[in-house]
Amino acid sequence: MGIPSEDPMTPHRLLYQDEIARLQRDTLEGFDLVIAALDRALEALAHQDLELAELVVADDDRIDGRYLQIHQGVLSLFARQAPVATDLRLLAALLHVIRNMERMGDQCVNISKLIPVSGEKPPTDPQILSMLEEMGLAVREIVRQAMKAFETRDETMAADLAERDQKVNDLNRAIFRRALEVGNDLELREWAMTMTLAARCLERVGDNAVDVGEQIAFVVTGVFREFADASHGPVSKSE
C-alpha cells in the first residue's frame, strides 16, 4: 500500500489568491468612500454647506491614497505572480476601475468646490434643486449597482448600467435647459450656471460607473466593448 498522492485539486498559491481578493475588497471599499463623498457633496450642495464641502475636498486624499495603494498592489502582482487568464483580466480591469473610482472622487471634489463660487445665500431655483437631488440619487444608485456587479461579476447587471445612466444624462440636459430659462435675475442665473456645472460632474460620475461596467464585462467575457458610444447613444443588448 503506497502513500496516496497529493490531490492536485487542492487549492494552492493561497497567498496570491488572498492578495487578489484583498485588492478587490480594497477597491470596493474605495467605492464606499466615493459614495460617502457623493452623499456629502450632494448635501453640501443642497444646503450651501461650506464646511461639509471642505470636508469632501480634504477627504478625497483617502480615495487618492486608495488608488495609489491598489495600483501598487496590482503592479506588484503583475511583477511577482505572473497572473494569467481571469486573474490577468481582473487585475488589468482593476487598473481601469480604480482610475474610474479616483475620477468619481474628483468629481465630488469639483462639486464641493462649486459651492463657495455660488455665494453664501444665493437665490435658488426649486426645480433645478429638485432635479439635482433626483440626479444625485440616480448617480448614487448607479455607483452602487456598479459595485454590486463588480462584486458578483454580473455581466447583465453591468450592461444595465448604461441604460440607467441614460436617465442621468437626460436629467443633465434638463438642468441645462432649465438654467437657460431660469429668468433675468443675474445672481439666480449665475447660481443656475454653477448648478449646470455640478450636474455635469454628476453626469460624469455616471459615465465612470458605466466604464466600470464595461470592465466587468471584460473580466467575464474576455472581450472589451463599449456599452455606450457618446456619439450614438446606448447600444442595445441585441447588438
Binding site: 497529493e6 492536485p8 487542492t10 494552492h12 498559491r13 493561497l14 497567498l15
Partner: peptide
C-alpha cells in the same frame, strides 16, 4: 508546478 506551489504555500 503543483508541488512547487504547495511548497511555496
Amino acid at each position: 508546478p503543483i508541488s512547487t506551489g504547495r511548497i511555496e504555500d
